[in-house]
Amino acid sequence: MATSDPTVKTTAAVDETGVETDTILQTRGLRKQFGGLTATDDVDFGIDEGELRCLIGPNGAGKSTFLKLLTGRLEPTAGSIYYDGDEIGHLPSHERVSRGISMKFQVPSIYPDLSVRENLRIPLQRIADPDTFEQRTRETLERFHLEGTADETAANLSHGQQQRLEIAMAMTLEPTLMLLDEPVAGLSVEETAEVADLLRTINAEDDVAFVVIEHDIDFVETIADQVTVLHDGAIFREGSIEDVRNDPAVKRIYLGEEE
C-alpha cells in the first residue's frame, strides 16, 4: 500500500552505495508492540531532504508512537530507522539530536521558570561560542517575532509566543530534520496562520525537512503538498493532499461519519 504511489519516493537512502537518493530519513519495517497491541505496524516511511511532510490520521492511529520511535523515547520492537544513511533506531535521544534531528513537542515545552534569554541559551550553548550568544539571541528573537521578550519569564509569554519560542529553540540547533507534534494545537486562528507561515518560511529558507504530526486537515492543506495517512499503526495512504482528501477510504477512516 505504502509504496504504490509513484509520486512518493520510498526507495532506499540505505542503499549500500549511499548515493542513491536524497532521502534524509527512512524507516524499514518499523514495528512497536505493547503486549498484544501493535501501535506501529511495519511502517516504511521516507522523507527527502528539505521536504515538508504531514503525517495525519485519526486519534489512536499510532502517530505519537511513531514519533516517539523517531525521537528515541521508545525502542522499536522490530525494524530500523535510517537517518542520513546510518541506522539510528537504537541510539538515545540526545545522540539523534546531535546528528541533526530536532523536535517540537505538542505542549509548548519551554522552560517556564527561566527567562526567554536563558531558554535560548540551552540549545545555543551546544553549537555557538559564548561571545556570540548575545548577538544570536537578538537575531533569533527578531526572526521569530519575539523582540523585547528576552528578559521575560517564559511562562509569562502568550501561548502563541511560547509556540514560536519553542520552534526558535529547536531551530537554534540548526537541524536537518524537524519533528513537530501538533504545532497548532490550542492556538487561535490568527496564531495558527502565523505558525503555518513560519513553518513554510523556515522550510524554504533553511532547507530543513519537516515531519508534522497533525489531525487538523485544514491546517495540513496550508503547509504541505504531500501527506502520509496512518491508520491502525500502518501507513494507509500516501500522496498529494488533494488525492488523499478525495479518497473515499481515507474519508471513511479519517473523517468518520462526515459524508
Binding site: 525521537t71 523515547r73 538515545p92 535521544s93 540526545h94 539530536v97 546531535s98 530536532s102 523536535m103 513537542f105 515545552s109 519551554i110 522552560y111 517556564p112 521558570d113 527561566l114 536563558e118 541559551r121 540551552i122 540549545p123 550553548q125 551546544r126 559564548p130 529553540m169 529547536a170 540547533l173
Partner: peptide, 22 residues
Amino acid sequence: QFGYAMVATREDEARTEMFGYN
C-alpha cells in the same frame, strides 16, 4: 555551560534531552 545543562535537566529532563544533552 554545565550549570545551565544541570538547571535545564532540573526544569525538564525530556525537553533537555531533545536539545542534545545527555
